[in-house]
Write a protein that binds this DNA or RNA. Structure first.
Lengths: 106, 106
DNA sequence: TCATAAGACAACCATTTGGTTGTCTTATAT
DNA sequence: ATATAAGACAACCAAATGGTTGTCTTATGA
């Protein structure tokens, strides 16, 4: 099995997508993030760990609080892959056409 | 736990991303997709099932072959979410600014 | 015609995932 | 000064994931 724990896997979980959405509007600590979610603070902390491990959020200490800040540049990896796949997909007919031309030649 | 098995989860696996990449260039049957991957045909078939379940590929019978064709429109869901999050994130300073203005007023 | 290749179906397995609870440390606010 | 809130750390758990192998059915091509 190949190394996982990348941006794609990070945004695969709906809870983590909601966390990112929430943090997009400004930094929050772990307790604040946990509000509105029906899960324990520990569960949130685990999600935070995953998100920070792949660079989607930045942590900073502020007293006893752990402040989380979104850092969405890494999402480029996702849009890049989608764009690339879409590009290939849109060209798929050209490939077919080329094949038909080559076949006719013979 | 919330319902998973969506496009985000489908593209979370690197093998499935490679399958999509391969199919972006034209339809293939399951055996053909399996070539170059170091895993069993059955494993490939499982990935195909997941991808077709969330509409990223279309299946069609051709004799005893199962032909798979990419259908990447569903990836909009991903780009839409990324775009939306990015938009919020880019506006986060305006929010802060507004807060500071309101604070000064008092 | 008949061996064979394509793939469905099922059982199984180890690891990962997403969550829980409990204990411990340490800043903070009254 | 001290109760308390924030969160780290660890152990635990059920379910999901990504893979395997074996058997069975059925089109196909020599």
């Amino acid at each position: 099995m190949i190394e996982r724990r990348d941006v794609f896997q990070a945004i695969a979980d709906p809870t983590r997508r909601m966390i990112i959405h929430k943090l997009s509007q400004g930094p929050l600590n772990i307790t604040q993030i946990g509000e509105d979610f029906g899960i324990s603070k520990q569960a949130i902390a685990k999600h935070i760990k995953i998100l920070s491990e792949c660079g989607l959020i930045l942590m900073s200490q502020k007293g006893r609080q752990q402040v989380c800040e979104a850092r969405l540049d890494q999402l480029d990896e996702v849009t890049d892959w989608v764009t690339e796949s879409r590009k290939l997909w849109n060209n798929r007919f050209e490939k077919l056409e080329q094949f038909l031309i080559n076949t006719k030649k013979q």
